[in-house]
Structures are given as C-alpha cells and as structure tokens.
C-alpha cells in the first residue's frame, strides 16, 4: 500500500490520531508535547504517528489534510487542528464534548490506550505497541 494510503487508512480507522515529532515516550518538539498533553488531559485514546522517520510522511499528510504544520490531531477521520486548537479545546471542555460526540458516551470506560503506529517504509509492518 502506498504511504499516502497508509496515512489515510490510519486517519480513517483510528479513533484519535496524533501526528507528531517523536513518540509519546520521547517527544521531540514543544508543539507536539502540547498537543499530547492536551489529549492526555482528557484521557483521549491516542494513536501516535511519528513523522520524523520519513519526510514523505509529513509531505503526504499535509497534502491530504491541507494543514502545513505538525502536530495534527484527527478524531474519527476529522482534522481537529494543531497544538493551539487542541490545547484551547481541552481548556474550554470542547475536546471532551467532541470525543463524546465522535466516540459515543462512555468511551473513557473502555480503558485508556495510548499506542504508536509506524508508517515509514523499512520499519516492518505497521505495528501496534501498547504503552503503559
């Protein structure tokens, strides 16, 4: 599958996707950290994608989303925004409302699962890694 299609499939199939620089365990950019913190503050089930292993991820992603910067947060296929928007929505409570609307009430009780998906070529098949 082409990289563009793998990106689109991840956006479409995961509840909450965070395209970031680095991983949740080792964040390599202040804005990615702000977005991750905002998502964690509401307990969002984050699926993280590191864009750094392959510059093409960022190029293809920005072409798909019409959004020039990283991080980018998607909920059920919809671009929610970058760090500023996600932080603002978390502070106003709208992020939780958005998750309630998109994932259905009670999503918190399904257990918080933060995981990382690797999209770059040469990293083997896309794997899911559970983070404690």
């Amino acid at each position: 599958m082409a990289l563009k299609d793998r990106i689109q499939e991840t956006i479409d199939s995961e509840d909450v996707v965070l395209f970031m620089k680095g991983t949740p365990e080792q964040v390599l950019c202040g804005n990615s950290a702000r977005a991750l913190d905002a998502l964690r503050s509401v307990g969002a089930p984050v699926t993280a994608v590191d864009v750094l292993p392959d510059p093409a991820i960022r190029q293809e992603l920005s072409a798909l989303s019409n959004w020039p910067t990283i991080p980018q947060v998607f909920v059920r296929g919809e671009l929610v925004g970058g760090a500023d928007i996600v932080q603002e929505l978390a502070e106003t409570g709208e992020l939780r409302e958005k998750l309630d609307g998109a994932l259905g009430e009670g999503w918190q009780e399904r257990g918080r699962q933060e995981r990382t998906v690797e999209l770059a070529e040469g990293q083997g098949p896309a794997g899911l890694r559970l983070v404690p």
Binding site: N66, W67, L79, V80, G81, G82, D84, I85, E88, L89
Partner: peptide, 8 residues
C-alpha cells in the same frame, strides 16, 4: 468559521 478554518 471553525477554528481549523480560521487557522487555515
């Protein structure tokens, strides 16, 4: 406009 549209 939505925040996404505003930022765009």
């Amino acid at each position: 406009l939505s925040l996404v549209e505003q930022h765009r």
